[in-house]
Amino acid sequence: MKKFLAVLMIAVTGLVAFTADTPGYKVGDIATDFKLKSVDGKMVSLANYTSAKGYIVVFTCNHCPYAKAYESRIIALDKMYASKGYPVIAISPNDPVSEPADSFDNMKKLAAEKKYTFPYTIDETQNITRAYGAKATPHVFVLQKTDKGNVVKYIGAIDDDTENVNPNHTKYVENAVNALIGGKTVETTTTKAIGCSIKWKKGA
């Protein structure tokens, strides 16, 4: 417990230093809605999900080894939580010119191949990526729908074990969503999103 607290303290101090000079959301902020094109050609907005209680917004992509490592865990999150009111919405933040592997066509292929049960959208202007402050792929934002809007409840990694080798790893996103479903406070609200940097448009 002491060790956990120490780690938490480090995480919190890290957060302060990290958010001080970085735009993007902090826990407690209201997240903006968006209208992004998904691989099935439809436009996706949070507001489309009338019965949702919240959202698991995941910035992820095709090419990144970290995104690949987490692919099946992202699919599992949607299977586990969509029916409980927290669907996964995946957003590819990368500029396909900078990273051709992340083109819309390649996104379509991957979603079909892996049988994504959730929308896989592309942030062509990168405005949503900037507004949320996504730093890496994958980067998760857990939102809770309230009267005031969609409140950010958790920002960071899916768990602390990308390679999925430690059976006792901490499942940050599951813990956060479980807390929200159970009407409890999210304990760990921010972690570092370890992964590949966002591939911004050149000159942006």
Binding site: V7, K135, K192, G195, S197
Partner: peptide, 15 residues
């Protein structure tokens, strides 16, 4: 991973 990154530098996002 989290403590490794933090152990190098608290300001490092991991990128």
């Amino acid at each position: 991973e989290q403590s490794f990154i933090d152990g190098i530098d608290k300001s490092w996002s991991g990128a």
